[in-house]
Design a protein around this nucleic acid. Structure first.
Lengths: 339, 339
DNA sequence: ACACAAGATGTTAGCGATAACAAGCAGTGG
DNA sequence: CCACTGCTTGTTATCGCTAACATCTTGTGT
């Protein structure tokens, strides 16, 4: 006999209240962990909740309270290590604080597209937004949204109403370049990240700064776009220049491309050319040879963004504002003293 | 003079209706793209919406309509290539269909944790759930949820009420193994994925099947856990066995570890040992040597899961149920004829 | 010219919670 | 012994939208 369940509608708070012999308001208080409820009452309510398998209706709660306990994350879908890691940091931190995370993907960083992503989140009623779009241009027209919804940006740029959390990208460039110069290399070449990305620009600036401090004239920048393929193209050029002995690549993924191209053209790593990457992706230690890189915790970055945002939502000042996540150099076999 | 904006409350539908000189219901109709609205009326409403900067209140809409236009994605946060790619496929497909995606992360695949993730989504009122937990055990106790909320699972296992979308993992194992045997290798070793994962088991089964078809006795499985480090450990063992000439590794990330260990111990790839991975991660083509691998589109998998789910929500039968995503062998330099 | 169908718009009544206020009940100090 | 304070609990009025039904047009066939 087919037991077609009568699509039993989910119970509501009133039904729980009836069963527990109290008012709906009391049920609401128990569910929200309100302090002033008699232990006995609390127990009765909890029993009724359990018995009916009751679950609060988020939409109703949101409508009545004005809060959704949801954070929005705007990002560009890519299988980049960094964006995935940031996302996870955000999710975990949000969950621990009792918030959900809704992803609002945007295919480009054009202000228009980002604004559309923002609008979707606003409709959904998110309590706050984390903007993980790493190009500066994209945030300039978003002030209107940020004024209505608390927003934290990860792009390193500072706009009106938008708080910022960032890794110290500049230091990354410095660490990598100093490491190579310390090894005795006469100069350091640079394969940059995509033009317009805050991270790319800051890393490049750090590199330039260190070279300048050492009185070294900077070689031309080889501009990549974060993809391994772009690293490979840069590597093909570098392989043709015998004077190149040290390369700072703005991401590990591009560094794989660079190393692949150099190796394929007979330039040995690290004997002929030293290579430094950035990110410490999981595979960096398993490259051939293992890749020296500058590590930074993107998870921590995401988590910090959440903390900032929640602090603002609670009207508290987050004292860790401005503190950057500190990057760290990991020396592996892809770098070698100059000979 | 500090222009402290009076926290101007967002306009509601009634205000839009007044401004447009129509009823709220008509505004609602226009906003939802209802057919029977006079063009002139529609225009008036749209103008009022524009003028007031009106945005529907999702919570109210959800409460009244019972639908949130939101999908839940349950996953284990990891910087795995596959999970990130699936997530993006889901997000993009969902967005195109006008749905948002809420991530519900679970730190383990224990049924209890997965159930908690499910419960959070249920409270939030998602219209459907995509379960991207790749271990079979995890779905067994989830039937109760799946009966209440339409659910699609990506784990390849079939449970009551749960529809499944999957890559043909079995074929992946076959393709890789056949390729190596075709190159003349007398046998093929296997570094598997984590025990209990549907993908790992199916790939291993495909490998075993092909060996059996060729009358080859299967060597012992080296069990990994998807991490490059576990691949490295397997590689250390393989390097000590001179008879090993061909290895099928269940993921590219582990394959990097395997290759790193083999190379470090003087086993040349592909001259001494051929290696095949799975996934075609972005870096596979830039490994040293470039990695032969079996590619599959995880984005397509995610997108298909969304299509299934939406078809079910609309009460339509999705005719593509059961069709698997077809994997494809990409031959690169890490495999070589046996000599 | 009239009944009637079909389209366009308006009206009413919730959806399921929470906020704000009201009320009841104990214990306290004068 | 009474007014008063502080804790518990209940009552009422929304929150902003949509479903369902009601009403008013307009055009059609005969």
């Amino acid at each position: 006999m087919p037991r077609v369940s009568e699509a039993a509608k989910a119970p509501n708070m009133t039904q729980v209240a009836e069963r527990a012999g109290v008012s709906a308001q009391t049920v609401s208080r128990v569910l929200r962990g309100h302090a002033n409820v008699q232990p006995a009452t609390r127990k009765k309510v909890e029993a009724a909740v359990q018995a009916l398998g009751y679950r609060v209706n988020g939409a109703a709660r949101a409508l009545a309270s004005g809060r959704t306990q949801t954070l929005g994350l705007i990002e560009i879908p890519s299988v980049n290590y960094s964006s995935a890691a940031i996302g996870h940091g955000v999710e975990i931190a949000a969950r621990e604080a009792g918030y959900s995370v809704t992803i609002s993907a945007t295919t480009s960083s054009h202000p228009q597209d980002v604004a559309a992503a923002f609008a979707r989140l606003e409709e959904q009623g998110v309590d706050g937004v984390i903007l993980a779009i790493p190009t500066r241009s994209s945030t300039s027209d978003l002030g209107a949204f940020a004024e209505r919804i608390p927003t934290v940006s990860l792009d390193g740029s500072l706009e009106r109403g938008v708080q910022v959390v960032a890794v110290d990208q500049h230091k990354i460039g410095r660490l990598a370049t100093e490491h190579l110069l310390d090894l005795g290399h006469p100069s350091v070449w640079h394969v940059s990240g995509q033009r317009g990305w805050v991270d790319a620009d800051a890393r490049e600036a750090g590199w330039l700064e260190v070279l300048a401090e050492h009185g070294i004239e900077a070689p031309p920048v080889l501009r990549g776009d974060w993809s391994p393929r772009s690293g490979e193209r840069a590597g093909e050029l570098l392989a043709r220049m015998p004077e190149v002995s040290a390369v700072f690549v703005a991401s590990d993924e591009m560094a794989f491309g660079v190393m692949s191209a150099l190796t394929a053209r007979g330039r040995r790593i690290p004997e002929d050319v030293s290579v430094v990457g950035v990110d410490d992706i999981a595979l960096a230690a398993y490259a051939t040879p293992p890749l020296t890189t500058v590590a930074q915790s993107y998870e921590a970055l995401g988590a910090r963004a959440v903390r900032h945002l929640l602090a603002r939502l609670d009207g508290v000042e987050d004292e860790s504002v401005g503190e950057s996540i500190v990057p760290e150099l990991l020396v592996r076999a892809s770098t070698h003293p100059w000979s």
